[in-house]
Lab assay of single mutants.
Amino acid sequence: MASQGTKRSYEQMETDGERQNATEIRASVGKMIDGIGRFYIQMCTELKLSDYEGRLIQNSLTIERMVLSAFDERRNKYLEEHPSAGKDPKKTGGPIYKRVDRKWMRELVLYDKEEIRRIWRQANNGDDATAGLTHMMIWHSNLNDTTYQRTRALVRTGMDPRMCSLMQGSTLPRRSGAAGAAVKGVGTMVMELIRMIKRGINDRNFWRGENGRKTRSAYERMCNILKGKFQTAAQRAMMDQVRESRNPGNAEIEDLIFLARSALILRGSVAHKSCLPACVYGPAVASGYDFEKEGYSLVGIDPFKLLQNSQVYSLIRPNENPAHKSQLVWMACNSAAFEDLRVLSFIRGTKVSPRGKLSTRGVQIASNENMDAMESSTLELRSRYWAIRTRSGGNTNQQRASAGQISVQPAFSVQRNLPFDKPTIMAAFTGNTEGRTSDMRAEIIRMMEGAKPEEMSFQGRGVFELSDERAANPIVPSFDMSNEGSYFFGDNAEEYDN
């Protein structure tokens, strides 16, 4: 993207840094990872977990959730003011799984939030270390993106479920800051804005008074975040219109849905970061690795190297396929839920299948599930090659597409044709070009129609051997075009429920 120079890199967003050079960025990201790792080690000690239990991804998720809940100030305040039966607002906890007599047992633990905050700050040299908290939120978000298709949420806001490739980060909490905003897809931002506008339509006082002023500035800020994701002048001009509207209503909703559809071809720039579970960072720190000293990046080879040398386990339900569970977590670790499966298959070195073909449910185990038949197995999170994460949407291309997802959002900077089903997408653009945004709409449609099938995206960008740390010898991959490109292809993934 041309304006790259004016933006802070995501590592800076990730670490609240002012302008830093590459070495400083690597050190501050490393410091953040160190903090998460030290916190995780301490929690495993508190909970008396064995090494194996500490490497269980379900335990990692519970521990991450506990610290996120302990620092969720708004919710904590709300819980104190609106006490609900049987919930102690000062405590947080969740299921911890232990191996007892050759069987997995679930144990519900409860801790004072104050105590968890103390352990977290102690692991982070006394700081609140917001960057580390956001990092864990993005890992949870990436896992949700890989596990669930947001059909219901899309339909509720009037969008087409086939636009799911635009929904990265749709389950990120509001408090995820600049680093969170960077990884949100165009569809996620559109959905947040539509929800806001709908509230304004239904509630006369939404934009009024002292609160209304705050609401208005939040609305304009979200519009600017979305505008910054678009790469064409016409899309940005249309966002200006939406932002400046005196009284946002149905016309703005129409414009936003139009823009979301246009992003299936004229893709937005959305950041991709490899955020790993805390149970990967903990053992690495415990083994003596100093992330701050060595430096770390979320968008280069580092996460690949770390996963190459990590042992992570997962509980497996009786009829689940461990290899499929591994694929789910591998995609989440690489922030690749909406990437082209052919690119992923090449990088991973084994075939990556669409969601609907995987015999696996989510990673988390519900409290009512029976533990008797639970097994555990090693997650295979290694890769054959590594590639640089991208934040450009890439230019655009036609490809055989599917009944489910009709476009992709690249996660890796790797040369390819970008699949999208042009006739299906263009069919949504018939007729409606009147109104105050008509010239911009016409211009956007013209650009979409001009998108050429034979153009290559990320020209000359390749993948790298894991021994090639400096990215000196790019390998331009070859793809098996007979395979499906979309992950949520004609899909039956479970729906995400809060």
Rank of each mutant, 00 (worst) to 15 (best):
N492H: 03
R243S: 04
L259T: 07
R389C: 11
A153S: 06
Q231V: 01
F71I: 12
N125P: 00
N142R: 04
V285F: 02
G169H: 14
M374R: 14
R204C: 01
F338V: 01
G126C: 08
D128M: 00
M426K: 04
A472H: 09
V312R: 14
S28W: 07
L172G: 07
Y148W: 11
K90N: 01
G288C: 13
E244V: 08
V183M: 04
Q415N: 13
M456G: 05
R461K: 12
D160Y: 04
S478V: 15
R382F: 06
A2R: 07
V312W: 06
E220K: 14
F230N: 08
T45L: 14
L307M: 05
K293E: 02
S165H: 10
L418Q: 13
L61T: 00
R162L: 12
T433V: 01
E24A: 00
R204L: 12
E220Q: 08
M136A: 03
D203N: 08
A129T: 02
A271H: 09
M105P: 07
N247C: 03
R348A: 06
C333P: 04
T390F: 02
Y289L: 09
K77Q: 14
G288Y: 10
F338G: 02
I301Y: 04
A471Q: 10
F71T: 06
D439A: 12
R99C: 08
R99N: 14
E254H: 12
R174T: 03
Q4H: 08
Q311D: 09
G300Q: 13
E53I: 05
K198F: 15
W207A: 06
E443I: 10
Q311K: 02
P322L: 14
G54D: 07
S69K: 01
E115G: 09
A129S: 08
I301K: 05
A336V: 14
Q398C: 05
V270C: 07
K325W: 11
F230M: 10
S141V: 08
P419T: 06
L68A: 01
Q12I: 01
Y496D: 13
S9E: 10
P303I: 07
M448R: 00
M456K: 08
N334G: 13
F488I: 14
A387E: 13
F488R: 11
L315P: 13
A472G: 13
I444H: 09
Y219V: 14
E434H: 08
T130C: 02
F304H: 12
R243Q: 01
N124L: 04
T437D: 15
L226G: 07
S486F: 12
A129N: 00
T92E: 11
M137K: 14
F488A: 11
I347Y: 09
R162G: 12
R470E: 11
S438H: 15
K90R: 15
T151M: 13
S367A: 05
R470D: 11
I445A: 01
R162W: 02
S262K: 07
P303T: 09
L418R: 06
L328M: 02
Q235F: 11
G295T: 07
K31R: 02
G295Y: 10
K113T: 14
N125E: 05
G94V: 08
D255P: 07
C333Q: 05
N205V: 03
G228V: 04
A27N: 07
N125W: 15
A323G: 04
M371Q: 00
A271L: 09
M239N: 12
N21W: 09
Y385M: 02
I225N: 13
C333Y: 13
G180H: 03
D497L: 15
Q399K: 15
P474W: 05
G126L: 15
S353P: 04
M371W: 04
H82S: 02
T350D: 09
R342T: 04
Y40H: 12
G431T: 00
S345K: 07
G94S: 08
I425T: 06
C164A: 15
Q415M: 02
A85M: 05
G393D: 08
D72S: 03
K103L: 01
